[in-house]
């Protein structure tokens, strides 16, 4: 982005204004996400930096809100970290651990369901001879477009009738619906760059359709499938509206727990949870990015 040598003074000024503006936007994007990290170590129950935190006084920082994640709901919170019995107590009773277990079970179930259905559908969608392809694609993508409140309330009425309300299966189905568009999009876009002559090459060398799928197609579209699966996982893990309508306390997930925390008694424990989630999203982002690069390399888009 270097300025050309013939740039005049106004162009130079404009160039710096432009760069400053972009820097500010980058900060606007990133700072709010990062601000929760230091605040989660606050020793006081405040949502602002204390004097001590600003002067980097070690006493102003603490892990109490992280301990609270475990303690909240425990039968005997005073026993935390003494002996071994607290582990069973926290595993069974801690509200946040209860929510985390639910989140993981539901997200994994939804991911498996949406990845299976989405990948198979994408294989069919990528064939241009499919009749009504545009319409089918629009239908399959629609859960991403329909407002979540409409989806959730509709499912609420259906699930109440067929007995899926307040069940894990119901939530898995709901989150799978929301996740499939991502899988369909990522896998079809991987397949659109797919060189079909590779399939013919495999067939002409005597491979059966199954072998061609396993040895030729699968390795090439695997990055697309995995990043679709990660999107589906992320969607489910972050979803709260459907959980509000379709779950009761037993199926409460982490975002649902945060939601009620924010609405009822807001405490810095939420910041500690948020920090852990930010760390998780950094991990998720890294994996998706690595997958994307691998996919581009495999498809020969970059060297």
């Amino acid at each position: 982005m270097a300025l050309p040598a013939y740039a005049d003074r106004w162009e130079r000024i404009w160039h710096w204004v432009y760069l400053t503006f972009c820097t500010l936007v980058f900060l606007f994007l990133l700072l709010p996400v990062l601000v929760v990290v230091p605040l989660s170590f606050n020793a006081e129950p405040y949502f602002s930096f204390t004097e001590g935190m600003l002067t980097l006084d070690p006493a102003a920082y603490s892990l109490r809100w992280y301990r609270d994640i475990l303690q909240n709901g425990m039968a005997d919170p005073t026993q935390l970290f003494s002996g071994w019995s607290w582990i069973g107590d926290a595993w069974a009773n801690s509200q946040w651990i209860h929510a985390a277990k639910n989140s993981i079970v539901i997200a994994i179930g939804a991911t498996i369901l949406s990845t299976l259905l989405g990948t198979v559908a994408a294989l069919g969608l990528s064939q241009s001879i499919l009749p009504g392809r545009r319409l089918i694609m629009a239908l399959l993508i629609s859960p991403m477009i329909v407002p979540i409140i409409v989806t959730s309330t509709s499912l609420y009425f259906l699930f109440s009738e067929i007995g899926l309300a307040n069940t894990y299966l119901g939530l898995i189905v709901a989150h799978a619906i929301l996740g499939t568009p991502f899988v369909v999009i990522t896998v079809t876009s991987t397949l659109s760059g797919f060189d079909r002559s590779l399939i013919r090459a495999g067939q002409s060398l005597g491979a059966s359709p199954l072998v061609v799928f396993q040895r030729v197609i699968m390795p090439l579209i695997l990055p697309g499938i995995l990043s679709g699966a990660l999107f589906a996982f992320g969607t489910s893990f972050d979803e709260v509206v459907a959980v509000i309508f379709l779950a009761d306390y037993d199926q409460r997930t982490i975002p649902r727990q945060m939601w009620s925390g924010l609405r009822e008694q807001i405490s810095p424990t939420i910041l500690a949870v948020a920090t852990i989630l930010v760390a998780m999203s950094i991990l998720l982002l890294t994996v998706v990015e690595l997958l994307r690069r691998r996919s581009e390399r495999l498809r020969g888009l970059t060297s």
Partner: peptide, 16 residues
């Protein structure tokens, strides 16, 4: 990173 960060985390951040 914001794109991948939980919606509730970002909303919490703005409340903070």
């Amino acid at each position: 990173l914001p794109f991948w960060t939980s919606l509730l985390v970002r909303t919490t951040a703005w409340i903070v």
